[in-house]
Design a binder for these strands. Structure first.
Length: 409
DNA sequence: AAAGTACACAACCGCCCGTCC
DNA sequence: CGGACGGGCGGTTGTGTACTT
């Protein structure tokens, strides 16, 4: 194994660092200083990517790093900063010398989980985040929300969803506790809420991203988030190269108001959870292709793959005459971020079977069209009835539109 | 006491974006 | 404009420990 000129062809090592590797990296920094991390593999026997080296140095080997647990004082500081600026870990680092962004992030996530479990608010004292900060402060608890009494309705609604408390409570309904234990699940909810909430004032088909560039990016990323797969398909090309090409192409086409896909595309099976082995995008308009890609992206972005999604949908179970939510035994974090992935079990005796909407099919519903049960709120019987009816109507509409449903019972 | 399970935490990876050349 | 690189951060994975059976 040589690192002289053939380093590109050598497979870079991943995983845990050995003491020997640490020593090599330390020696490199002593000799050449910090930076130019890509040179590490050229100048030493360490076959790690530059980024991995940088992270290892900054998070573990840097001499200024403070070892040991976060102190009470540091915790207090983190809480204050989080309330003030939200999850900007890299900014917090400036106030917490010796700590890394990753360390702070991990600490916060763990603290959040612990306090949630204990039913404690995330902020011990009355801390009043600014409105714009509430948008990113997904973990805000109910009690803290109440403290922040001047937030807008929308912001409040979002925080209701993000709180660990009951979302769906009504007469005749089993209370559903959306016990959010992992950050990415908060994200999933965030996206669903932002796009499907009937209580938000902006209920039109708001794009997931707002500005022009962003609105195009996801469509493209949906197909290309599996960069490593593409690298395999394009021998001689590096991930970075592909990444750059796609970024530039996306921006260019966004500027020119061009769709990302000129031709009819077939997305890969692994992206589409191709249950029936059918390819379904043939004949789709660019708009539909983009829409499909966007859906793919959203799933991908939020830490799930389609297999997981189809296996861990929120379900509507048959409980008397009212649908209720249940997690079907899945971990909370596995609950579908995709309203279109919900399973439906009819309360009608004659249709006692469940369906899964296979989300790969054309004419996917717009997110705003889907009355996702996760966000239904019922304070009285009428509202409950209305939501139930709405959900049933939607399901019927999907069937009318020849959506394909997979019978799973 | 041993095996199994759940949880906490640390470490790492991958995606995206910005900047520089 | 395009390539290289660094940085931020969300999310996942691996490992150690506590708890339960």
């Amino acid at each position: 194994m040589s690192n002289s000129n053939g380093s590109d062809t050598i497979k870079l090592k991943k995983g845990a660092w050995s003491l020997h590797e640490d020593a090599i990296l330390k020696e490199y920094v002593r000799k050449y200083g910090e930076g130019n991390w890509d040179d590490v593999k050229k100048k030493t026997e360490l076959f790690r990517c530059g980024k991995s080296c940088r992270l290892r140095w900054l998070n573990h080997l840097h001499p200024d790093l403070k070892k040991g647990s976060i102190t009470r004082e540091e915790e207090q500081k983190i809480v204050e900063l989080h309330a003030k600026i939200g999850p900007k870990w890299s900014l917090m680092v400036q106030e917490l010398p010796g700590r890394t962004d990753n360390e702070i992030k991990n600490f916060w996530n763990i603290r959040t989980r612990k306090r949630t479990k204990l039913g404690l608010p995330l902020y011990d004292q009355i801390i009043k985040p600014h409105d714009h900060e509430l948008n990113v402060n997904r973990e805000c608890t109910l009690s803290n929300k109440e403290q922040a009494d001047d937030v807008s309705h929308e912001v409040k609604f979002k925080n209701d969803i993000f709180s660990r408390k009951c979302i769906l409570v009504s007469n005749g309904f089993e209370p559903f506790h959306a016990s959010i234990t992992q950050p990415h699940f908060s994200n999933m909810l965030c996206n669903n809420v932002a796009n499907t909430s009937p209580t938000l004032t902006n209920t039109d088909e708001t794009p997931f991203m707002t500005n022009a560039t962003e609105s195009y990016q996801p469509q493209f990323q949906g197909c290309n988030s599996k960069c490593y797969k593409i690298v395999e398909e394009l021998p001689g090309r590096r991930g970075n190269e592909i990444d750059n090409y796609h970024n530039i192409r996306t921006k260019k086409r966004a500027r020119a108001s061009l769709p990302l896909y000129d031709q009819i595309i077939n997305l890969c099976d692994f992206e589409l959870n191709d249950i029936n082995g059918e390819t379904c995008l043939d004949g789709l308009s660019n708009q539909h292709q983009a829409h499909v890609s966007q859906q793919v992206h959203k799933s991908d972005t939020h830490g799930s793959n389609f297999e997981q999604l189809s296996n861990s949908c929120a379900s509507i179970s048959n409980s008397n005459t009212s649908p209720t939510l249940s997690s079907r035994g899945a971990m909370e974090s596995d609950l579908s971020p995709f309203p279109e992935c919900l399973d439906f079990q009819s309360s009608d005796e004659s249709q006692l079977h469940s369906y899964s909407l296979i989300h790969k099919y054309p004419l996917l519903p717009l997110r705003s069209e889907i009355p996702h049960p996760m966000i239904l709120e019922h304070s009285n019987a009428n509202q409950m009835h209305s939501s139930e009816t709405r959900l049933k109507d939607w399901l019927m509409k999907m069937e009318r539109n020849q959506f394909l449903w997979r019978k799973i019972n």
